[in-house]
Amino acid sequence: MKLGPQLITLLNKRYEPSSTIETVFNKYDLTFKTDDQGRPILAFIGNKGPNGIIKGERFARRIVTDQTGQVIKDHWDNKGKS
């Protein structure tokens, strides 16, 4: 599974820092964790089971910044099944 442009747009927004956000995207359940600046860094997308755990794919975000805080590299890696 790849992250499409609509999902990337949703994940590029800023949210509450250091929190876990649960939402629905199209027909999938989506849970993501944010860093101390409110950027999503870990995402789980799939179908939520009766115990609340998402079975699907896990994605991790790689953000590289320079000393002034400018983003040099920003991409999502598929880490496999969750």
Rank of each mutant, 00 (worst) to 15 (best):
D36E: 07
D36P: 00
Q37D: 07
Q37Y: 03
Q37F: 07
Q37A: 06
G38R: 03
R39H: 06
R39W: 06
P40L: 05
I41A: 00
I41D: 00
L42T: 08
L42H: 13
L42V: 08
L42R: 08
A43G: 01
A43T: 08
F44N: 14
F44I: 01
F44L: 13
F44A: 04
I45Q: 11
I45G: 05
I45E: 05
G46N: 11
G46L: 08
G46A: 11
N47P: 02
G49F: 02
P50Y: 06
N51M: 01
G52D: 12
I54T: 07
K55Y: 15
K55C: 06
G56H: 14
E57M: 09
E57C: 05
E57H: 11
R58V: 15
R58Q: 15
R58E: 11
F59E: 04
F59L: 06
F59M: 05
F59T: 11
A60E: 15
A60D: 07
R61T: 09
R61S: 09
R62K: 12
I63L: 06
I63W: 04
I63K: 07
V64T: 15
T65S: 12
T65A: 08
D66F: 03
D66W: 02
D66V: 07
D66K: 02
Q67S: 13
T68R: 06
G69N: 08
G69T: 10
V71A: 02
V71F: 01
V71D: 04
V71N: 01
V71K: 04
V71M: 00
V71G: 00
I72E: 09
I72F: 02
K73Y: 11
K73D: 09
K73M: 08
K73T: 09
D74P: 05
H75W: 07
H75Q: 08
H75A: 08
W76I: 07
W76Q: 10
D77Y: 06
N78T: 06
N78I: 00
N78Q: 03
K79N: 01
K79G: 00
K79A: 04
K79T: 02
G80E: 10
K81P: 03
S82I: 04
